[in-house]
């Protein structure tokens, strides 16, 4: 049974950042795709990370043509599709995880076409019903967002938009106006995947975004190590790790739990 939520998705996500801020640290939001390496293992991995004290989740819906993703997530989501994962099964996964006591905010990350095929309005309603808090759509810029944004606003789900190092000051203002929940700040020009070093001009870029945006900033792309994680404190409101956790997922749930715990501890 799903508990009746008192707060909307947007409000739930706001409390996540408030708590991290009280503790003077950045929030840690891992990404993990449903269905990798198997459906069951992906649920166990997410549950293990929840128990390790992460602050929230990006739950990956697999897509055949993930053009913002690097080789690690491409390969993982391809396997998830071969394992028969559908949009519906991703929604079921969230319901199951809520049933197992996962309380952290969960945002679904999906490319647009699977949402269109499912029906955007129906998807948003069902996402809310299973206990999701928001939606991240990497190929949906604010200019094209009306359809999805209206449905999310009606149901109180967050709709996250992206900023990249190439975004102009005008676009920072635009994205800040549209984004609910937080702004996903892409650390570099590129696709997802672990990098040994973050770009040297990252601090400058974040300062430029801060000057125009008042929504929480969550940094993603390229972050994989505890050292990189601890450097997020004071820089951004939160950060996402994906590919490194997916790689750990190859070895099993324990490896995911361990890496998530190390990344989380690095923030204290």
């Amino acid at each position: 049974m799903v508990e009746v939520k008192q707060l909307t998705g947007v409000e739930t996500i706001a409390t996540l950042f408030a708590r991290a801020r009280e503790q003077n640290r950045a929030a840690f939001l891992p990404y993990f795709p449903i269905g990798y390496p198997t459906y069951e293992t992906s649920l166990d991995a997410i549950q293990a990370m929840a128990e390790a004290g992460v602050d929230g989740f990006e739950i990956g819906v697999p897509f055949s043509d993930p053009l913002a993703d690097g080789p690690t997530i491409q390969a993982a989501t391809q396997i998830a599709l071969e394992n028969g994962v559908t949009v519906r099964k991703c929604l079921d996964a969230i319901q199951t995880l809520r049933g197992r006591g996962v309380t952290q905010p969960m945002l679904l990350m999906s490319y647009l076409n699977p949402l269109l095929a499912y029906g955007v309005d129906r998807f948003v309603l069902d996402a809310k019903a299973v206990g999701a808090d928001g939606l991240i759509v990497p190929d949906l810029p604010p200019e094209e967002a009306a359809l999805v944004a209206d449905a999310c606003a009606r149901e109180g789900l967050a709709l996250v938009f992206f900023l990249a190092p190439t975004s102009s000051d005008e676009r920072i203002t635009l994205v800040n106006r549209y984004a609910t929940g937080f702004i996903y700040v892409v650390s570099l020009t590129g696709v997802t995947g672990a990098r040994t070093e973050l770009p040297p001009d990252l601090r400058e870029f974040i300062t430029r975004v801060r000057a125009k945006a008042d929504k929480p900033l969550v940094l993603g792309f390229g972050i994989s190590t505890p050292e990189q994680a601890s450097s997020m404190n004071g820089l951004v409101d939160g950060f996402i790790v994906g590919s490194a956790l997916v790689k750990a997922g190859r070895e099993g749930v324990d490896a995911v739990r361990e890496l998530a715990a190390r990344l989380r501890r690095a923030l204290d």
Binding site: D139, E143, S167, R171
Partner: peptide
């Protein structure tokens, strides 16, 4: 101006590419 041909077309790409 938004690149639409009736209901078709548009720009559905990651933010990084929009300025480009």
């Amino acid at each position: 101006a938004r690149g639409y041909y009736g209901e078709f077309g548009g720009r559905f790409v990651p933010e990084t590419l929009i300025p480009a």
